[in-house]
Design a protein around this nucleic acid. Structure first.
Lengths: 345, 345
DNA sequence: GACCCAAGTGTGACCGGTCACAATCCTCGC
DNA sequence: GCGAGGATTGTGACCGGTCACACTTGGGTC
């Protein structure tokens, strides 16, 4: 290891070459594991590398080779549980593959802003992962030039979202379907739905899974209550629904919304699950500890992030191609917030 | 704009130079806003840039100039609210300054693992921001070579953490002090404390703020209950405290712990705030919607992230130096979970 | 009209790697 | 003992920018 202080510039391969008495190309071969280097030579080079504390300059490597071992994740709102978990999964997989992870936040769904952010990500070089659960993300995915290696993280795709690009997805449709069936099976006449903002103009996958379950059960379908992402939106929606005593079961687009709904029901004096059942979506870490604890559908976001990276990795290195469109299978988690409807319903 | 399809390699400054009939150096001057370029020339170059869709190659720029306009954030656990918010703030400020943001997650506090992660971050080039609220982060900050531009995000520093490096901080001590005083002022004899893992071997700032408030009020001091970061840890700690009927007020190291404590108290049949008051830390988005809603101390994490970036930016560009050690001032938010102790206490 | 200086522009080297190809070294077969 | 051919190693150009410096101009001054 380099002990002699005041090393201004870090050592380059030519420094190492000089120290080892070989050419820079030989050093390059050693650090790239090229087979035809005499063991004794390799030994000497490795010693020099160690002594000088050499580390390959990733910038120069990227420039010369054209490959950059980097991913940029384009996402809205990293503070939301689902997004943060996906990011966590991506980072984990990227770290294992020694890729660098960059992050770009889509703050608005405005076309110009999205385009600018995509450009920034493209400038960074390397691959791209776009989390397209919301309008901004969907637009971003659409705005990625065809020449760039990209993987989309999307909800149940009705049709391939970004042309024929690779993507990974959560089976939101199935998840909503399961949760709705669960509530219906408890005896509720129907299930009301508080929706997160749709990622597209079309109906979201969650909405359509909910709708299908109702249809199959012959249950009347009410209009989904459009809401935002956070608890405040759920609270507002919950206040509306709390006023209607015919409402006995509410499915929420995510656990944050469910939290707001629970609070609103509490404020309105309606007990959960005695009078109203509530189910969420995502199984955020706090959901199990709410009072009442929240029935929800767990989605493996971290695993989804890992898949997304694996897929991109396959594209970038043309090595063993992984499954084309990995899906995260949802799992219903029944807790205290759901139960049979009150007598008389 | 470039309309003629099949452009394989993106345009370089030499391509632009040829198109504009000037030398590549002139193109370089134009994109860098160098003053001595004849307006008519600049015009022609800009037209060529636009026509070819030229964008400066950031990799080449970084290699040649030695400056990279990039920050890497080293952090544990991006799914926790505080960390995610700081990251959000950093990204926001970085985007405004058109810096790229990289992220490295410290998964273990193991020295070797931390060192490896620091190395990865160093390899990325550019500046470093280390979130040092936990042992892994603190070690990482310590492991950053002195030659690297770095800013630490730390809790109330007893002594400068990473030598004399710049840092930003939240006044955790003051925050804990305020929360504890609030509870005492309601009439509680003393306040128990459920602690997050300390960032160092020494007592954490939160702990010492709590302790000071007790001491000033002459209240008896109990041993802090050591816990983890998440609601599960809070739940376990809460179960312990719930058994002791002399406990009437609990301060929790963060809102997630508080959630677990609330749940445990509920399970033990102790009402909040009737029998026990609970206060948290951070004001996470869900805290206002819990039942009961949570009294807590709000910390401006996003602003803290912005300050951290601003500070680093100043270091990197030696431009207008900002305040040396920006601090985020805490704000007490009183909600339903705290009230006077039950009669007889 | 010669001289000086600043504005405007171009040339060559370099950042730290990689790639393509040439040159040298060995070892083996005959 | 000699040539073939693979194993090793070295050289020069290049990735797409920047930097340092040299070279034209054009105006003003005396």
């Amino acid at each position: 290891m380099n002990v002699t202080g005041h090393t201004r510039r870090p050592a380059s391969i030519r420094d190492v070459a000089t120290a080892a008495g070989v050419s820079y190309q030989t050093v390059s071969r050693v650090i790239n594991g090229h087979p035809s280097v005499r063991p004794s030579t390799r030994e000497r080079v490795l010693a020099a590398i160690d002594e000088l504390g050499f580390r390959r300059n990733v910038t120069a490597h990227a420039l010369a080779s054209g490959r950059s071992r980097a991913v940029t994740v384009l996402t809205a709102n990293t503070t939301h549980y689902g997004y943060a978990s996906i990011l966590q999964g991506i980072e984990e997989a990227a770290r294992a593959a020694s890729y660098a992870v960059g992050i770009g936040v889509l703050e608005s769904a405005d076309d110009a802003a999205v385009a600018a952010e995509v450009q920034r990500a493209a400038d960074a070089g390397g691959g791209l992962i776009v989390i397209a659960y919301d309008p901004a993300g969907v637009r971003a995915l659409g705005a990625v030039p065809a020449t760039l290696p990209v993987v989309g993280v999307v909800e149940t795709p009705a049709s391939p979202p970004g042309g024929d690009r690779p993507w990974v997805w959560t089976d939101d449709r199935e998840a909503a379907y399961q949760a709705t069936r669960h509530l219906l099976s408890l005896g509720h006449e129907t299930v009301h739905y508080v929706a997160i903002p749709s990622s597209t103009r079309r109906t979201s996958a969650r909405t359509s899974g909910w709708r299908q379950a109702l249809k199959e059960a012959g249950a009347p379908e009410s209009r989904p209550v459009q809401s935002s992402w956070g608890p405040a939106g759920g609270h507002a929606a919950g206040l509306k629904l709390a006023g209607d005593t015919s409402v006995t079961a509410i499915l929420c687009g995510n656990d944050d919304l469910a939290l707001g709904v629970l609070r609103a029901l509490h404020e309105a004096g309606r007990s959960v699950p005695g009078e109203v059942s509530v189910a969420g979506f995502d199984d955020a870490p706090h959901s199990a500890f709410l009072t009442p604890s929240l029935t929800t559908v767990r989605l493996d976001f971290t695993g989804l992030g890992r898949s997304a990276f694996a897929l991109l990795h396959g594209v970038l290195e043309e090595s063993a191609q992984v499954a084309p469109h990995p899906v995260s299978v949802p799992e219903l988690v029944v807790r205290e917030s759901s139960g049979p409807p009150p007598a008389g319903h």
